[in-house]
C-alpha cells in the first residue's frame, strides 16, 4: 500500500516491518490506556456522535450533496489519523489490509508480539449475536481484551502459541474467511481478523460505502485457462464477486479490478489453476488498493 509502506514499511510491506509489532512502539505511543478506553465501549463506535454525526443512516448521509463529501473526507481522515491526541471513543487510525493465508501465518510465526490470544469476533457478536472464536489479537491488545469477559470464549484456550495461532488462521481460511491485518492505531499492528462480509465492520464500510477501512491485498488473482476445469469451486469462495463461470468458455473469468487478492479461490482450486500476482507489477492495478 504505497503510502503506508513508504511511511511504515522500512523499505518493504508495512505489515512485515517488525518494529510495528513491538512493545517499544506501543509504549512510545502510550497504547495501553488508549486501547483500554477504546475496547471498553467497542460496540458504541457506530452509535456515538463524532463531530456531530454518527454512522446511523451513513449511506444516506454520504449521498447528500456537498455535505456527503465533507463527511466522507472527515471519516477517511479519522480512519487514517496519525495525530498524537487520538480520541479513544472513535476508530482513529484503525484500518487494515487483506493478506493471503501464507502471509498471515508468517506474521503469526515470526512477527506478532506475545501474548497471542483468540477471542470472539466483535463484529459478528455485535452485528449477528454469534459467538465465533475467530479474531487473533496480540501484543498490548491481548492484555486489554483479556480483561473484557464478553469477548473471551468459554471452555476454550484463550492464549495460543505461535503454531496454534497459525493453525487457527488456517482453519478460518478453510471455512472461507478472508484474512486481514490491522493497524490499531497506525502504525501499531495488533490483530489478524478472519473477515466475512457483510457482518465485518471494516468490510462493510469498504464494500457498501467505499471507505478505506480495508485495503486490497498486495496481490491479485489470475486464472490459467489451460488448467481450469470449470468446476466452479472458486466462484463460491470469493466474497468480493470477482469470479464468474462462463458457460461459453467452460471456465471461470476473474475480474482483476474487483479482486481483493485474498487468495481464497487459489486455496480452494483443486486443479491449481489460480495464482496470485503482485498488484504493483500490473500497470492497470498498480497503486489501486
Amino acid at each position: 500500500m504505497c503510502d503506508w509502506c513508504m511511511k511504515h514499511g522500512a523499505g518493504g510491506k508495512w505489515y512485515l516491518n517488525a518494529r510495528n509489532y513491538s512493545y517499544e512502539l506501543a509504549e512510545a505511543m502510550n497504547l495501553q490506556a488508549y486501547l483500554e478506553e477504546q475496547w471498553k465501549n467497542f460496540e458504541q463506535v457506530y452509535i456515538r456522535k463524532i463531530m456531530g454525526i454518527s454512522s446511523i443512516g451513513l449511506g444516506y448521509k454520504l449521498r447528500m450533496p456537498i455535505i456527503g463529501r465533507v463527511i466522507r473526507r472527515a471519516v477517511e481522515g479519522m480512519i487514517h489519523s496519525e495525530s498524537k491526541n487520538r480520541n479513544p471513543v472513535r476508530a482513529d487510525g484503525h484500518f487494515g489490509q487483506v493478506i493471503p493465508i501464507e502471509e498471515a501465518k508468517l506474521i503469526m510465526l515470526n512477527l506478532a508480539a506475545e501474548p497471542i490470544i483468540q477471542n470472539y469476533c466483535m463484529c459478528r457478536l455485535m452485528q449477528k449475536g454469534i459467538k465465533d472464536v475467530c479474531c487473533i489479537n496480540f501484543g498490548v491488545l491481548s492484555t486489554v481484551i483479556e480483561k473484557l469477559p464478553r469477548f473471551i470464549p468459554e471452555n476454550t484456550k484463550v492464549r495460543l502459541s505461535r503454531d496454534e495461532a497459525a493453525a487457527a488462521l488456517e482453519e478460518q481460511n478453510r471455512k472461507g474467511r478472508v484474512a486481514t491485518v490491522w493497524f490499531q492505531p497506525v502504525p501499531y499492528i495488533c490483530a489478524i481478523c478472519s473477515c466475512e462480509t457483510p457482518q465485518c465492520g471494516g468490510l462493510r464500510l469498504r464494500m457498501d460505502f467505499g471507505l478505506h477501512t480495508v485495503y486490497k491485498a498486495e496481490y491479485y488473482a489470475e486464472v490459467n485457462p489451460d488448467l481450469c476445469q470449470g468446476c466452479k469451486t472458486c466462484v463460491a469462495s470469493c466474497q468480493f464477486g470477482a469470479i464468474r463461470f462462463s458457460p461459453t468458455l467452460k471456465r471461470v473469468l476473474i475480474d482483476p479490478t474487483k479482486c481483493f487478492g485474498c487468495g481464497l479461490c487459489r486455496d480452494r482450486c483443486p486443479h491449481d489453476a489460480i495464482r496470485l500476482l503482485p498488484r504493483n507489477e500490473n500497470p492497470l492495478l498498480r497503486g489501486k488498493y
Partner: peptide
C-alpha cells in the same frame, strides 16, 4: 433481529449514559 437480517442492519451495543458516573 440480528440473525434474521441478511444485510446486517442492526447493531447490539451497550446502552448509552444510563448512569451518569459510568457511560458504559
Amino acid at each position: 433481529c440480528l440473525q434474521a437480517c441478511d444485510p446486517a442492519v442492526f447493531v447490539r451495543h451497550m446502552a448509552f449514559n444510563v448512569k451518569e458516573d459510568n457511560p458504559y
